[in-house]
Design a protein around this nucleic acid. Structure first.
Lengths: 231, 231
DNA sequence: TCCGAATGTTCGTATTGACGAACGATGGGT
DNA sequence: ACCCATCGTTCGTCAATACGAACATTCGGA
């Protein structure tokens, strides 16, 4: 049965709330961290899906299980859940608890999210000069947003162009953020403020973004790709 | 691996509790772990964590709620769940069903996985010439792995260097994969096989990786950053 | 052919998740 | 000082999740 998916799983679902159309959330900016907003990159913006996860869970479970070449019985045993439970889940009957699904994801050795996520892609293109930019406080530092967090991915993609001069000290972001930098051209000192590293073209570095960090161009025409990963 | 998975959440739980070794981040210098298969996006991706998700869910819920500036009451209303339920969840009491947590993730406008995932960062550095490479079948195409999927992040980071010659046709990867390309130098035709786009330095494109796609260098010394996102 | 061992499905049962409502605690406004 | 609004927690109650066990079904070997 499980056809419609008005979130609620239980009896008197109705008190307003209802569907979670995923859009009734004004979102109010939130997302904090100065960055935010933009939206230059088309893709939808909300976190989740309309349909609800259970349908996807059912198919994903079966698919991953077969891919792993396990029988329903064996998976149930390994995960420590009852065969019956697993069977019902694969039949899209029922709304598993997190621990149950977690156990299954572990036993299957697949990321938890994979069992729940729908999500769909699309082609996007940003030309060199285009795209929303963050004018930054100074003219010698320019960050172009290539791709902001789509529905489920928690990362932003920036193209950085910077000129020598003063270092750019970034305030630490939210906890759990990781920044990845690949230098395209020029030369740069980048990394944690207390221990930055000099990069040459082609070099790569990753560092925690929730600590103070710098980005200081050392040559004219320094450009880099920055991936900010929101954990 | 993943021997028995006694993750039981219910009554008699706690026998031997959970282990879920699941390997964490070796990370040392050049992550990888063999990474196996060629062709980007080889990695499978470990699934889970040792502690079990509920502890993290509790803190994540509270954190995200406060970040969004919502009161417990308001979030409960928006998500369509009972205040009491939410309160208990934030107190790490209880094991929410997927739909419940889903509703909360939607109302909070955060990816579902974020509420369940632990994960931790670290500084990593890969010099231009170094890092595990994927020799590819031809000499004129070289992909250097900058960062493979850490525990829970679902993306790989590559530095691509290619020479003009023949196009590189990639077989479609797993469903849901998205590839992002930022051109650093040279010129390239890239994108879905039936409709590739020519990029100049600084240009960016994203396209579904689960469809056939090409990467054809048009100039000598073409280099690009490739982010393969495993959805 | 019969039998045994697998697979995945359906039964009852009880533990437990989610609910509404009532409860102290804060904090503003008049 | 008072009152009212709002915050977050705790209290009973009911439905549903998850369980074990019995149940169909298919497959392979003697």
């Amino acid at each position: 049965m499980t056809e419609t998916g008005p979130v609620q799983h239980n009896r008197r679902a109705d008190t307003a709330s209802q569907a979670t159309p995923a859009s009734d959330v004004p979102a109010s900016g939130t997302t904090a961290s100065g960055a935010a907003a933009s939206e230059g990159t088309g893709v939808a913006g909300t976190a989740a899906e309309t349909t609800g996860p259970l349908a996807h869970i059912a198919s994903a479970l079966r698919r991953e299980r077969q891919r792993a070449g396990m029988s329903l019985t064996e998976l149930a045993r390994r995960a420590g859940v009852a065969k019956s439970t697993l069977s019902q889940l694969e039949s899209a009957a029922g709304n598993p608890s997190v621990e149950t699904l977690w156990a299954l994801s572990v036993a299957l050795d697949v990321p938890f999210a994979l069992l729940v996520q729908p999500a769909r892609p699309q082609v996007q293109l940003v030309r060199a000069g285009e795209g929303p930019r963050f004018a930054a406080d100074r003219a010698d530092y320019l960050a172009t947003v290539l791709s902001t967090c789509p529905p489920n991915a928690r990362r932003d993609l920036y193209l950085i162009t910077a000129e020598p001069g003063s270092a750019r000290e970034s305030d630490p972001h939210m906890p759990g953020v990781v920044e990845h930098v690949v230098l395209s051209a020029g030369r740069v000192m980048v990394g944690p403020s207390d221990d930055p590293t000099e990069l040459a073209p082609g070099d790569y570095i990753a560092y925690p973004g929730d600590l103070p960090h710098v980005f200081e161009a050392l040559e004219h025409g320094t450009t880099a790709v920055l991936v900010s990963e929101h954990t």
